[in-house]
């Protein structure tokens, strides 16, 4: 819960400051293949990589979606136009992460999150961002930006985030 709230803070802060890309390409994903931790449990496995779930730095403002929809809202288009300009002026590679709120089948939400991320990617490509610099990944219901079981949390969890790596 605390972690979700923090992640949300990072997204907002990053969005407000509208960082350019340069100098900001830190990567939180390295080390996710840590050494083994023999715990003796029947299914013990290589552990380590604490923070493996925390992906790269949020560098652009997130965009939000309506329930069970992947179409870009007008507010999302405005945000993405600004994001596209930042990306075109900077360098490096961006991963667009698609997310959903907690309602519904987790597997379907992975697919919906992918569709959201793909829609964002296509729009940014249409705005002139080289496709080779944008990849996508879906997290579905995982890692909500805001903890909670009501629309006040859900509206911030149906989103696409931008990570440098």
């Amino acid at each position: 819960m605390a972690r979700s709230a923090m992640a949300y803070g990072v997204v907002l802060a990053a969005g407000l400051m509208a960082f350019g890309l340069a100098g900001c390409a830190s990567d939180g994903t390295s080390g996710s293949e840590g050494g083994s931790d023999s715990t003796g449990s029947e299914f013990s496995e290589g552990g380590g990589g604490g923070g493996g779930a925390g992906s790269g730095t949020s560098i652009l403002e997130a965009v939000y979606f309506d329930y069970d929809r992947a179409e870009l809202r007008s507010d999302a288009r405005t945000t993405l136009q600004a994001n596209a300009s930042s990306v075109k002026n900077g360098g490096g590679h961006i991963t667009i992460e698609g997310y959903c709120d907690e309602r519904g089948s987790e597997e379907y939400n992975l697919a919906l999150g992918e569709r959201r991320a793909n829609g964002v990617r296509q729009y940014m490509v249409d705005l002139g961002v080289p496709a080779s610099r944008l990849s996508t990944v879906s997290f579905g219901e995982a890692r909500p930006a805001v903890a909670g079981h009501t629309e006040s949390a859900w509206r911030y969890n149906r989103r696409a985030e931008f990570k440098a790596r």
């Binding site: 996710s32 013990s44 493996g52 997290f139």
Partner: peptide, 27 residues
Amino acid sequence: RNGSINNFPDWAPNGEGILYTSYRHQN
């Protein structure tokens, strides 16, 4: 215990393994 996101466990029918989805590699 890899600290990443792990989901959708599915038992091997002989009970000797579990197939699952994990973000542990390359997120």
